[in-house]
């Protein structure tokens, strides 16, 4: 007989933490990524080679809570569930409506997207732009890590062997507008060649906040606070550089690969134009 997976289905988050500590089991929420990653040929049981911890059913991980300063999303809330929540920012909803297909959105979770840490993960640039932080829990307690410090490389992140991603915390912030664009392989059920998230706040003719985050063009999401700072709170009339020059500062950060979906040249070239267009649009806004 072929080996059988060891799988745990905890009754509570407490129990999940304990099982995670005791066994190092792999957390699985909807399975939409992991079942593909560990799939074998037809008819065979996917085999991650280590114990599995089902967490998708845990109520504590499947809720959205709005607080005064932030929105807290349980890591196992499905995409479909998020779409019906008023507290979820519009840019994230827009991103989710362009993500995969209804059957995937019914099972897939934003926590899974984060922990999968794929360079092409659709929600990641949006979560970076929203400056989310992640609540990682274990049997002993919780810690909170900003998303840009959590994801460290393709498929790599700072989740410890005993931790579970519990919540995604989206700080509330005022924005005058946002832009989300996914350049995919087709119009539905597609993987991103480039995904672009931009947010801005304009007050009294000045850019008070601007955030640009781009996915699928480098090992992790590209965001530069340094470049953003060169625009923030500078009167638009006294900006020294053209938007083309500003966008060009991103050039060293954009390091895409050529793969089965697109090319280095296309991804880099189009990304710079998307940035430039966003900057132009923002700087032309009256505010």
């Amino acid at each position: 007989m072929v080996t059988q997976n060891v799988v745990y289905r905890p009754g509570s988050l407490e129990e999940a933490y304990r099982l995670r500590t005791d066994t190092g089991a792999l957390p699985l929420a909807g399975g939409t990524d992991l079942m593909v990653r560990y799939r074998k040929t037809a008819g065979l049981v996917p085999d991650p080679g280590r114990p599995v911890l089902f967490i998708g059913h845990l109520k504590d991980l499947r809720r959205v809570e709005e607080r005064a300063e932030e929105v807290r999303i349980g890591s196992c809330t499905t995409y479909t569930e998020l779409l019906s929540q008023k507290a979820v920012p519009e840019i994230l909803k827009r991103c989710i409506t362009l993500l995969a297909s209804p059957p995937i959105r019914n099972r897939g979770t934003v926590g899974g997207n984060i922990c999968n840490s794929s360079p092409a993960g659709d929600t990641l640039p949006v979560l970076h732009a929203l400056e989310c932080s992640l609540v990682l829990g274990n049997i002993r307690g919780e810690r909170t890590v900003p998303i840009d410090r959590f994801i460290t490389g393709p498929g790599e992140n700072a989740l410890s062997e005993d931790e579970i991603l519990k919540e995604i915390v989206i700080p509330k912030a005022a924005f005058s507008g946002w832009c989300y664009r996914k350049i995919g392989t087709r119009r539905a059920n597609a993987l991103a060649k480039i995904s672009f998230a931009g947010l801005y706040l304009i007050e009294s003719g000045e850019v008070h906040d601007i955030r640009i985050a781009i996915g699928a063009v480098a090992p992790t999401v590209v965001r530069s606070r340094e470049i953003e700072k060169t625009i923030i709170r500078i009167p638009r009339t006294s900006l020294q550089r053209s938007t083309v020059e500003m966008a060009a500062r991103y050039r060293p950060l954009i390091r895409p690969i050529t793969d089965q979906r697109s090319t280095t040249g296309y991804r880099a070239g189009v990304t710079l134009v998307l940035i430039e267009q966003f900057l132009t649009a923002v700087l032309q806004k009256k505010g």
């Binding site: 297909s101 119009r187 539905a188 597609a190």
Partner: peptide, 27 residues
Amino acid sequence: TIELLQKENGRLRQKNLTDYIIPSSMD
């Protein structure tokens, strides 16, 4: 428009329906 099937050193780059894209109902 979208159906790209490329060979690289005699191997197909697109290996499954995630990589090889056919029209969906939205296209």
